[in-house]
């Protein structure tokens, strides 16, 4: 499990495509550069989608993990 302590957390459990990506974007927008957002999702598609989101937007996916049907992502705000 990650040692990173997030500045903010976002719960996307139960949401389906494309809501986790949209909510992540919305949560990152007002944050400051360098801050970390933790996102928890249950949509298996979010694994590929969050990686694509990170590559396209430049918000680095610094860590991710999964277990118990949950997927956890840590984004560092660009």
């Amino acid at each position: 499990m990650s040692q990173i302590s997030p500045d903010q957390e976002l719960d996307c459990r139960g949401m389906n495509c494309p809501l986790p990506v949209l909510k992540t974007k919305k949560a990152l927008n007002p944050m400051e550069g360098g801050q970390v957002l933790k996102v928890t999702a249950t949509d298996p598609g979010s694994v590929a989608d969050m990686a694509a989101f990170s590559r396209r937007t430049g918000n680095e996916l610094v860590d991710q993990s999964q277990g118990d049907g949950e997927f956890v992502f840590f984004f560092r705000r660009k």
Binding site: C17, P18, V21, L22, T24, K25, A52, F53, R56, T57
Partner: peptide, 12 residues
């Protein structure tokens, strides 16, 4: 609407 909103979230 899915493609438009997601693309915009991807800074397009």
């Amino acid at each position: 609407f899915i493609l438009a909103s997601t693309a915009a979230a991807l800074d397009m």
